[in-house]
Write a protein that binds this DNA or RNA. Structure first.
Lengths: 196, 196
DNA sequence: GTCTATACTTCGATAGAC
DNA sequence: GTCTATCGAAGTATAGAC
């Protein structure tokens, strides 16, 4: 049975504060540390307010994810029209704060089923958008896109940056400097228009 | 103040059952779904038994992680002496079940500080062990290890397989087939002894 | 439109009986 | 070596006051 309880306005200041608090707790302590009480405490509001603005915790997480994903899409659009699109694509995935948050949402998706499809949907959007730009650059540089399909190169780039950020958050470092140097070198080669 | 409460034997059947249950819940529902009551229910034991065998939940997670990591190290040792070490390294990281569990532990580490250093320690161990074998193979094949440091290649391979498995668990597929084909091709090239 | 009081559930953990 | 009884804290969510 669906509840008829009233729900707070979307442009409320408190609502935004609750979403901000949610993000902060996720990054600092992990998604499992997010609870209505902790969020309210962080936002300096009363716990039940969480349920006034978001009917369930799923609704809260969904709203937090969508807000962040939309910001990311806008950011990506801006950045891809910059002078060095390849480096821009790499730098985009190499941002620790946003990657950490993304990985928390992915972990969250494992036991919040309603989150899963939304994450997958946006992740596909990001990949396609980035791949589009990458394909253009690769074609311009005369790189063999049969041997190196842009979508595969894009997937590899994303994988590397995400895992590097993830490992660094654990305090790992083995192989990181070498990997970053390797990627930087390859990006420079691609940028100059090597044949492989 | 340290509790003097008694603790169960390490070779107890119930203790092993509790660790099994912990793993199952982590994979199926995420680490946040693991609670002493849920574990006991899954293992068909009484809830307080969890605290009899593990003083705290941190102790439980630590024991679960160590047990799995040691199994992984043994598995890795066996696999690396096989006929096709490159493919063995790749296949090792490309195993969905173990990767899913690993990613849950990583997510868990974000708010269970005592887990973090243990995960990092084992992850470094794995990387060094795999890199050692990779370096030997690359040297044999005459691959330029200055331009492609084995530890960087190893980091990249691990990144790709982990992210592919992770994304697939979300229901994503964009770029995966192309990426797997690209990796397979490169591994074959490396295996045959290309110059780059 | 916003917040408070509160019900109900589940959690981790301990002491002590068997 | 295992289980019962139980405490205090924290969780989600709702009804209703302001």
């Amino acid at each position: 049975m669906v509840s008829n309880r009233r729900i707070g306005a979307e442009d409320s200041k408190s609502r935004a504060a609750l979403l901000d608090a949610t993000e902060q707790i996720m990054v600092e302590e992990g998604y499992a540390a997010v609870s209505s009480r902790r969020i309210a405490q962080r936002a300096e509001l009363k716990p039940p307010l969480v349920h006034y603005y978001f009917r369930t915790m799923d609704d809260l997480f969904l709203a937090a994810f969508r807000r962040r994903a939309e910001i990311g899409l806008e950011h990506l659009s801006m950045v891809l029209t910059s002078g060095r699109p390849l480096h821009a694509i790499w730098a985009f995935g190499d941002d620790p704060a946003s990657t950490a948050l993304t990985m928390e949402f992915v972990a969250l998706a494992n036991h919040r089923k309603v989150i899963r499809s939304e994450i997958a949907r946006y992740a596909e959007l990001f990949r396609l958008k980035q791949t589009e730009v990458l394909a253009t650059v690769m074609a311009e540089r005369g790189i063999d896109t049969d041997r190196f399909p842009p979508v595969a190169v894009m997937t590899v780039m994303t994988s590397i940056s995400q895992i590097l950020v993830l490992e660094e958050s654990l305090g790992m470092a083995t192989g990181h400097a070498e990997t970053r140097a390797l990627v930087a070198g390859l990006l420079d080669d691609f940028g100059r228009g090597g044949t492989s």
